[in-house]
Design a binder for these strands. Sequence first.
DNA 1: TTGATTTGACCTCC
DNA 2: GGAGGTCAAATCAA
Length: 258
Amino acid sequence: MSHGVDKAVEALLRGQESAYRLKTVLEHASSVPTEPLFDTVLDSFSFALSLFASSNPQPHRESSQNKATPVVAQKSPKKNSHGEEGLEQYIQDSPTPFCNDGFSWRKYGQKKIKTSSHQRCYYRCAYAKDRNCNATKRVQQIQNSPSVYRTTYVGKHICEVNAFLQPNEDIINGSKMIRFDKIDQVMPDSVMPQLVPVEQQEAIIIEGTDQIMNLECGSNEFLVEDEQLWGYQFPPCSPGNFMFLDALSEFDYNPFHV
DNA sequence: TTGATTTGACCTCC
DNA sequence: GGAGGTCAAATCAA
């Protein structure tokens, strides 16, 4: 991985951790509905990270602050139930179920695992049939206090490849703009994602429950330039919320490498 | 009515 | 035979 990518990933990780903690704090200290905004922030970071993770597998790396970090990119030689082997696995640990990862998932199973007191939930890409996408993920709580949820992604999303390869009017002058809303309004700086050094923050992790399902998110909706392709990606957001990914163009922006 | 979720049964691997 | 993963009918919710 290039130095630029390292820096971008580092910044994204820092932002993601900040957003997670800020969300947790505000959820318990304010009656103002901040869920959509923070979900969008988390979506943005998570999606960007997922792109990097897909194109640039890294060895296991855990944050000292929490586990909300892409930690493993590994290949499993084990065959699945259909005899497929060599599918890539990507493990993500986080204080909350990692549901806002930029993709739409459909739950197809839930099972009690012998080695764990918590149930494991099984998801596959919501467009598995329509677009022959074989991406799946498993979500399981692996730790109680503080709660840690492990999301294991298996396979790659081939349903999104065409979206990234198509010309995009928002890709201008080396910048990529993901548009959360078409309404031409400006989001106040106060609510835009802020990158704060991790060391300046207080790590706050609210103890979760044993019920993974109650914390799972529904289908996501997300508006960018190509509404047909992106409309289902992220949850709705406040008007005019833009996200610039300036640095992405300086390296190979093909997150799915098929 | 339609799409998503739940859950017991079934399949595959070890 | 046990455990993990998937299927599919039943159920739920919008």
